[in-house]
């Protein structure tokens, strides 16, 4: 019998630990499929973050390093300098990348480090139990913002893609979402483009992916997808912010 579909070789058989309805699983698969489709699996080296995706080193079948909180772009810099021909990526959440690791991501972009960052933005700290993130929306409740994020005291959510798009050596910056099938397909295209540009050695590549956290948002998986669409996308608009191949 013909095999019409099978799991990508980019993932191991280890069962994910993610909560029901969490979109990390989808994003893992997209990254793994892209690596397989581009023939990069044997040469890929990924960097896991601290946060919900901390165990992704067990899920991706390529070589992996587990970084300290926020330091994945620095670790990836070391890896890529030693392995300039490898496909190197970091997989980071919003607390990891936009808060404690803000300096590392900005300066890896500034240097034009030739790796790809997959930035999973779900507007909350998931692993530690629902604390406010730099990307938590104004008014959104979190365990450290029990009355909702107060913009006078905690400021406004950080739009990382827009910020990185101002950096000349960040040659591909796109924000996508995985709340429905058409957007999942667009997300995969963006991830593929980012790795293609990385392998051409053109500079730093970045894909921000809006993601859900039903557990810490206090919503069902379906409500979460709807909430993402209605609340996150208006503040974090989807689209390409930079594509060096189109700017000639």
């Amino acid at each position: 019998m013909a095999v019409v579909f099978q799991k990508t070789k980019g993932l191991t058989d280890k069962q994910f630990h993610y909560c029901p309805g969490c979109t990390h699983g989808i994003i893992h698969r997209l990254v793994a499929e892209v690596l397989e489709e581009l023939g990069l699996l044997d040469d890929a080296i990924g960097v896991a973050p601290v946060g919900c995706a901390v165990f992704c080193y067990d899920y991706f079948s390529c070589d992996m390093q587990e970084a300290a909180h926020g330091r994945a772009p620095a670790v990836a810099t070391g890896i890529k300098r030693v392995n300039p021909k490898s496909a190197v990526f970091t997989y980071q959440g919003d607390g990891d990348l936009a808060s404690i690791g803000a300096a590392e991501i900005v300066h890896a972009s500034m240097r034009g480090e030739k790796f790809t960052t997959i930035f999973v933005n779900n507007a909350i700290y998931g692993m530690t139990g629902g604390q406010m993130a730099p990307t938590t929306l104004v008014g959104q409740k979190a365990t450290t913002a029990p009355y909702g994020r107060n913009e006078d005291l905690a400021g406004m959510p950080l739009r990382v893609s827009e910020m990185l798009a101002t950096i000349p050596k960040a040659v591909f910056v796109e924000r996508v979402s995985v709340h429905d099938i058409p957007n999942i397909n667009k997300a995969k295209k963006a991830i593929k483009k980012a790795f293609e540009i990385q392998m051409k050695g053109l500079g730093f590549t970045f894909v921000e992916i809006l993601s859900t956290c039903p557990t810490n948002w206090g919503k069902t998986p379906l409500e979460s997808l709807k909430w993402l669409q209605e609340n996150m996308i208006p503040y974090f608009p989807l689209g390409n912010f930079r594509n060096v191949e189109e700017v000639k």
Partner: peptide, 13 residues
């Protein structure tokens, strides 16, 4: 902080 983490990545390779 970044420098020592670059060391981690490079040494790990």
């Amino acid at each position: 902080v970044a420098a020592i983490n670059m060391v981690y990545g490079g040494a790990g390779s």
